[in-house]
């Protein structure tokens, strides 16, 4: 390979001409590293896609576990689910008795900031674990253990968000809007999960439904999914799937 030089370089005194070639001795090592790295890139999606109620593909599980620390720390742990498997309803978080909802386009600007809050509200919703389990689920010990862990995390996240919002409201940022009436006490703010359902083209184009109408927001229940089931804890429970005007 001919040596390549630029004769018009502005600083020839610093010129360190080289062939730009990789030393042959290094190439096999670099290819090996690249191969391991690329395996790490595909490890998470392969594991993610191979999961079912029965098992995860054993070879993909082994790959994911083997490369676990590298995949996790290098931020390669993605299934690349963009609008998949289907575009779904959006989820928001509201504060009971306060007209605070996030994400909020007017409150969070620029758009990237709004999107950060949107991702948090989706995360909060996906972390949801009900206040109690249905009796038939209680028989499965593993299921119960998992629910307990999930429930602990959900409550911790709930308290964390609540404290942060409370601190923010308390700093006076919202005081001009008269929203701080209950913030003197130490009581935890009650977070409410909200869902904006997706409507079909007929409903929207005929004007029956308007996108962004807050009356369409559904308050999601905190208890188990079964109908007419009383709450088994003393935690505050919002209205069960109450639509239209139930919030705030």
């Amino acid at each position: 390979m001919p040596r390549i030089l630029r004769m018009t370089d502005p600083s020839p005194q610093l010129a360190r001409p080289s062939s730009g070639q990789c030393k042959p001795a290094y190439r096999k090592w670099l290819l090996g590293l690249a191969l391991v790295h690329l395996l790490a890139v595909i490890a998470e999606p392969l594991f993610f896609y191979s999961r079912s109620d029965v098992q995860a593909g054993p070879e993909f599980l082994a790959l994911r576990r083997g490369l676990g620390p590298y995949v996790d720390w290098m931020y390669l742990d993605h299934g690349y689910f963009f609008f998949a498997p289907n575009p779904g309803p959006s989820h928001l978080v509201g504060i009971r008795d306060q007209s605070v909802v996030f994400p909020d386009r007017k409150e969070q600007w620029p758009r990237l900031l709004y999107h950060r809050y949107f991702m948090l509200s989706e995360f909060y919703n996906s972390s949801f674990a009900p206040t109690a389990l249905d009796p038939q689920d209680m028989a499965d010990r593993l299921f119960v253990e998992r629910w307990e862990t999930d429930r602990r995390f959900y409550r911790t996240l709930q308290r964390s968000i609540s404290r942060s919002v409370r601190a923010r409201l308390g700093t006076g940022l919202e005081q001009e809007r008269g929203l701080d009436q209950d913030l003197e006490s130490d009581q935890e703010l009650v977070l409410v999960r909200l869902e904006r359902p997706l409507f079909g083209p007929l409903e929207v184009l005929s004007g029956v439904k308007r996108l962004g109408d807050s009356r369409d927001l559904i308050v999601l229940p905190e208890g188990p999914a079964g109908p007419d089931r009383p709450s088994e804890t003393s935690e505050p429970e919002p209205a069960r799937a109450a639509p239209v005007g139930a919030f705030p």
Binding site: L38, V41, P45, Y49, G79, Y80, A84, P85, N86
Partner: peptide, 17 residues
């Protein structure tokens, strides 16, 4: 290529696609 391939496979699991 990995991102697009698995992004596409993820969509292929949904009936709306």
């Amino acid at each position: 290529c990995v991102i697009y391939f698995f992004g596409g496979l993820g969509k292929a699991r949904g009936w709306m696609w």
